[in-house]
Lab assay of single mutants.
Amino acid sequence: AEKTGIVNVSSSLNVREGASTSSKVIGSLSGNTKVTIVGEEGAFYKIEYKGSHGYVAKEYIKDIKDE
């Protein structure tokens, strides 16, 4: 049951290796980017990222929809 969301930041949002603010940053997404959410862990969504997965803070994702 995948969902999509939109990155809701003015600059960019860090994509992390794990569901923690201390996890390594593996990339970033600019505002209004559409993401595919494959799961959630605590305050983070697990998303599809560059052929693999990454984690982003839930508070910066809006317009969550079921695909």
Score class of each variant (00 low, 15 high):
A43K: 12
V35E: 00
I37P: 00
E48M: 14
G5I: 04
S23W: 02
K24M: 11
K58V: 05
G42F: 05
Y49K: 00
S10C: 09
V56M: 02
A57H: 10
V38Y: 07
V7N: 03
G39P: 00
N32K: 08
A57M: 14
S22H: 14
N14P: 14
L13M: 08
V7A: 05
S30R: 15
S52T: 12
V7P: 03
F44G: 00
I6C: 08
G54Q: 01
V9Y: 03
S30D: 11
D66R: 04
V15N: 00
K65R: 13
G39F: 04
E41M: 11
G54N: 01
I37W: 01
D63G: 10
G39M: 04
G18K: 12
L29P: 00
T33W: 06
E17G: 08
K50W: 07
K34A: 07
Y60N: 10
V9A: 12
K34W: 07
I47S: 00
I26W: 02
I26V: 08
K50A: 13
E17H: 09
S20A: 09
N14Y: 11
G18N: 14
A43C: 07
I37V: 05
I6K: 07
N32G: 14
T33A: 15
K46P: 00
K3G: 05
H53C: 05
G51F: 06
K65G: 08
Y55R: 00
T36R: 15
S23G: 05
V25C: 06
D66N: 11
R16G: 03
Y60F: 13
S30C: 07
N14D: 15
V15Q: 00
G18F: 13
L29C: 03
D63N: 11
S11F: 09
G31Q: 11
I26R: 03
A19E: 02
S28Q: 14
V7C: 04
D63Q: 15
K62V: 14
K58R: 08
I6W: 08
S52P: 01
G54D: 00
I47R: 00
V7W: 01
V9W: 03
N8D: 09
T36M: 14
E41C: 07
H53I: 12
V35F: 03
N32R: 10
S52N: 13
A19L: 04
V15P: 00
H53G: 04
G51A: 09
V9P: 09
S30V: 12
I37N: 00
I6G: 03
T33L: 06
L29E: 01
V35G: 00
E48N: 12
G39S: 08
I6L: 09
S11I: 10
S20W: 06
I37S: 00
K24G: 06
S23A: 13
K34H: 09
A19V: 06
A57S: 15
L13H: 03
G54P: 01
D63F: 11
K62T: 13
I61T: 02
I6F: 06
F44M: 04
D63H: 14
D63M: 14
E59Y: 09
G18M: 14
K3C: 05
K50V: 09
G5W: 02
A1Y: 11
H53W: 09
I26K: 03
E59S: 09
G31K: 15
R16T: 12
K34T: 13
I47F: 02
S28D: 07
G18T: 14
K65N: 14
E2K: 07
G39I: 02
F44E: 01
I64P: 06
Y55M: 02
L13Y: 03
E2C: 10
A1Q: 12
V35C: 04
G27V: 02
S11M: 12
S20Q: 07
S28M: 11
N14V: 15
I47T: 01
H53K: 06
I37D: 00
K34Q: 10
S23C: 06
K62E: 09
E17R: 06
L29H: 01
A43G: 14
A19M: 05
I37C: 02
I61A: 01
E41K: 08
Y49A: 01
K50P: 02
S20I: 07
V7R: 02
V56R: 00
K62L: 12
